[in-house]
Structures are given as C-alpha cells and as structure tokens.
Design a protein around this nucleic acid. Structure first.
Lengths: 189, 189
DNA sequence: CTTCGCCTACCTACCATTTGGCAGGTAGAT
DNA sequence: ATCTACCTGCCAAATGGTAGGTAGGCGAAG
C-alpha cells in the first residue's frame, strides 16, 4: 500500500530525527545522517518535509503529543495524585537510560536563540503541557493553595535541571539522588 | 608592551567566545564570527589557541574560575549563610538579563555528546564547584544533616532548570517565580 | 486487456555557503 | 637576528537546499 509506505518513511524520519535531536540538538540534526539512518537519500527528506525548520517543528510537535499521551495514561492508571507526582520524573529518567539522551525540548530550549519560530513555538507548548498537567495533579492534592501553578513550573524546571546535570556526567544515579532531594525538601512531595 | 597586547587579544577572544557560547553553545561557536568581534582575522586565533577544543576548554575553565571568585566574594561579604543561599540564583539571573543568555556550562552540558574531552572536564568542574560551595553554605546552616551534598546538587540543578525554562520564552519573571517556589517549598529555604 | 496519464516516493547531480584548519608570509619591537 | 602577533590564501569537508529525472502503482478510458 502506498499510503502505508508513505507513513512508514515519514514516521521513520520523525523517529530518527527525535533520537538524533535528543543527542545532538536541532543544530546537530543533519539530513545526511538522518537519511542514512532511515535508509533513503538526504534529498528525499524534502519530499516529506519542505525544510529543516518544518522537520524540527514536526519532531517537537510529535514529542509533546507523545508526552501528553503518556502523562494522561499515567493519570488514568492511578487515582492517587501523589503517586503521579512521584512518578513524573520517570519520563526524564527514561531519556537518560536511552543513551544519556536529554529531553528534546530542554535541548531546544538551550538552542532558543537559533531556533526557527515554528520550532520555538512547539518547544514552548511542550513546557505548557507539562506545567498544566502538574498543576492538575498538584491541585488534586491541595486545591486551596494559590501557588499551585508556580509550584508546577518549579517542579518541571527542577526535574529538567536534574536531567541536565545527570547528562553532563552520564550518571543516572545522580538524577535519582537529586529527585530524592526534591522529595525530601517538599518540592516533589 | 607586547605582553600586554598579547594578553589583550587573548582576553578579548576569551570574552567574546564566552558571550557567543552562552548564546549559541560550543557547536555554534565559530572562529570567523569570533575574530570579527575581536577585530582580528579568524586564522589569527590559532596563534593563541591551537584548536577549537583548546579554546572551548579555556573558555569553560575561565568561566568556573570567575564564578568561583564571585561565590567566594559573596561568602566573604556576608556572614549569614541563609542570605548566601537566597542570593545564589542571582548569578544565573544575570545571564538572563544579559541578552537571555544561558549559563555556559548548562549549554555545554546539553551538548555533552559532542564535546571534546577537555571541555567536558571543565564543564564538570564547574558543577563540582557550585555543589561544593552550596554544600559549605548549607552545612553552615545545618551541620548535622547527612543529606547536605544531595541537597546542594538539587539546588544547583533546580536553579539551572529554572534558568533554562526562563530562556525558552525569554521571560525573567518566570525565573523569579520559580525561584520563589523553591524558597516556598523549602528547597532554597 | 492494454495504454496512458497522474501521482507518490524516491534518486542523482549539483550548488553556494560555511567551517576548522594549514602553510607561508610580514611588520614591528627588541 | 629573533620573536610575537598577526595576515593572506587556500583546502577539504560538511550542510541545507534545488532542479530534473525515474520507477512503480493505480484508475480511467478505449
């Protein structure tokens, strides 16, 4: 089926691009390596994505779509918001487990100055989705606090920072240790 | 004095490289732009630094040397460790104020996979120095706790994460809000 | 059934630009 | 003469992108 084959290459490109960008960032994403990974030629990528910026935006968009689905699945699976909060950092840990990779949108946040606008927008959407989700979970624990949104942003930022620090020395145990400290201090607890 | 002129260009290169790398990372650091900024030609940089990796390592090293000096100066100026803790995030805020720049070593941490070993080593030293300093400050507040080092790492990571998030939308107020949440939760209290 | 036109999903060949680096050279100071 | 701190000119490699082409599948028409 031509429809299946088309979806297959486009999907393969998105998957390979995500993996590459989590390791090397947007700037380090290049068509020739990508194409080789997928088993096509570099210029063929233009058939599916008109420019690198379009590819970058599509990758970042798929990333938050997948993360949103995973967050919602976690929430559907557990009625305990405290457990959700405790489990949230696992998503970030999984990238580290996967070859010491960084959250795609953290990497792109660092590269903010050089990002095309469309990519920036998707990166910001990712953060918004995480903060909104955390806000929901925190509010289920304590509906009365006027600081829930601020705390949600703080948790997101803190977990991102923990991942970045663990990446800088390829040390997952450090990530775990930092998360424990967040729990101990009450930020994540 | 030829010694002075030599120091002047080398220093100018280091300064320009730091500014550029805080905006564009190691990967985005390039000799032609750098040289233009300094007022020399790109190939002249090789006179002072034999390779890009040497330049990168020298920049990162100067960065932590300067930060260490600033941290120690803060500590010398104030006998109150709680005040030191509250003031610590100011250093990160200043980079944001300076054109929405990121901490050099945060950017390079993201780029970990593509860093020359010598640069990686300097990046890790930066984190070590921050954590050690925070550990000192925290231990002056509570010497008995067995978790001070973990907490020091957590504070460093959290503040780095706050800066990264603020950069992703060029929003210093967000940085402030997140730092407030850390204080409120007790992580930075 | 065959042929044709259209579409999809690639390919080849090439381009301009950018980048780290190299080799050889020079001006000025001592 | 020697040394320092540059410069010029060039190179190979890498990169996003363009233009033109092709093979195969499919549906419609004869």
């Amino acid at each position: 089926m031509s429809m299946t084959i088309s979806s297959s290459s486009r999907e393969a490109i998105l998957t390979a691009a995500r993996r590459a960008a989590q390791m090397h960032g947007y700037n380090g994403l290049n068509f020739r390596d990508l194409a080789k990974e997928v088993g096509i030629k570099a210029a063929s990528i233009y058939y599916h994505f008109p420019s690198k910026a379009d590819l970058g935006a599509a990758v970042a968009r798929r990333y938050w779509e997948d993360i949103r689905a995973a967050l919602n699945a976690m929430q559907a699976e557990t009625t305990d918001p405290r457990l959700c909060l405790r489990r949230y950092p696992e998503m970030f840990r999984r990238s580290l487990e996967n070859g010491n990779r960084l959250c795609l949108c953290s990497f792109m946040s660092a590269e903010y100055a050089d990002l095309p606008d469309a990519v920036r927008h998707e990166v910001q959407t990712f953060a918004d989705i995480n903060v909104a989700w955390l806000d929901t979970v925190i509010s289920a624990i304590d509906q009365a606090s006027p600081h829930n949104t601020g705390r949600a942003s703080a948790i997101f930022a803190a977990v991102s920072g923990a991942q970045l620090m663990a990446r800088s020395r390829a040390d997952i145990a450090l990530f775990d240790e930092i998360i424990d400290s967040y729990c101990r201090s009450g930020l994540l607890g």
